[in-house]
């Protein structure tokens, strides 16, 4: 469903700040794969996701979504294939627009925006039903401005928006990291529910190793712009946090000491 072929990316090439963010990455996701991605800060997790989304161009390599080469496609055109949820709850929704208006924007992802009405009464009724599923009381606040919602509510809404139009791949960039533990759990539960219901191919970055182990059918670990560990199915189910830390030590050597990954 998603194929990353030999993708590399260097930021600030030729300066003292030169950083090899991605180093010849290869990854292939099968339809229905739910992959969790872990790794320390600067491992290249977010860069990899942003490359897939088209936020920056790749230096070399190819990205294919459902067999289509999207490597040279502009971010907004690539959005046709992708659902995205960001780390910052403010990024995924338009604060000054209503809940129903945000959903209507998402419902038209990948379509030409014409002079037809931006949101119909029939759509509104449908959104009400969908919002009920979140169980956050948002179905009663359809015409409220999104800026009035809490971070957790906004992330849940963004999730709904990302999947309103079935994406080929769902990209979750630490989407629960900015939330308190209780809300984070709720949003992750909703994520699992939506992914299962729509059988979505998903790539989820997380800093929480327990979540990375519990959720999804496959796990990859990144370090220094490379994928250093890739495990799926039964083998992943048997994995423990201790195993992951051990694995990380072996592959990453001494770099581990100061890492945020140890703290979580």
């Amino acid at each position: 469903m998603l194929e990353i072929r030999n993708v590399s990316k260097v930021f600030n090439p030729g300066t003292v700040n030169e950083k090899k963010a991605l180093n010849d990455i290869n990854l292939k996701l099968n339809p229905g794969d739910f992959v969790t991605v872990i790794g320390g800060n600067g491992a290249g997790k977010s860069t990899m996701l942003n490359m897939v989304a088209g936020v920056y161009p790749v230096d070399s390599g190819q990205i294919l979504i459902d067999g289509v080469d999207v490597t040279r496609l502009h971010e907004y055109k690539r959005a046709k294939y992708l659902g995205r949820v960001f780390q910052d709850p403010m990024t995924g929704t338009a604060a000054t627009m209503q809940i129903d208006e945000n959903l209507a924007l998402a419902a038209r992802r990948g379509q030409a925006r014409t002079l037809r009405i931006g949101i119909s009464a029939k759509e509104r009724a449908g959104y009400k039903e969908l919002l009920k599923m979140l169980d956050l009381g948002l179905e009663e606040r359809l015409t409220s401005k999104v800026g009035l919602l809490s971070g957790g509510q906004r992330q849940a809404l963004t999730l709904l928006m990302a999947t309103l139009k079935q994406p080929k791949v769902l990209l979750l960039d630490e989407h629960t990291a900015a939330l308190d533990p209780k809300t984070a759990k709720k949003v992750l539960d909703i994520t699992e529910e939506i992914v299962a219901k729509n059988q979505l191919t998903t790539l989820m970055i997380t800093h929480n190793m327990a979540d990375a182990l519990r959720v999804g059918n496959r796990l990859i670990m990144m370090n220094g712009g490379r994928i250093i560990f890739d495990v799926a199915g039964e083998e992943k189910k048997k994995l423990t946090t201790a195993d992951l830390l051990e694995k990380f030590k072996i592959s990453a050597g001494e770099e581990l000491n100061n890492d945020r990954m140890l703290l979580s």
Binding site: A53, E75, Y76, K77, A79, K80, L82, R84, F86, M90, T91, G92, T93, A94, A95, T96, M97, E101, A104, L105, A106, R108, R109, G110, Q111, R113, T114, L115, R116, I117, G118, I119, M161, A162
Partner: peptide
């Protein structure tokens, strides 16, 4: 109130979200 007009409003409200939703900002 049209799709096109909503796209312009979204562009001004949140440009990252707009691109992620396939809007030609």
């Amino acid at each position: 109130g049209t799709e096109m007009g909503c796209g312009i409003r979204a562009t001004g409200a949140n440009i990252n979200m707009s691109r992620a939703q396939g809007i030609n900002t």
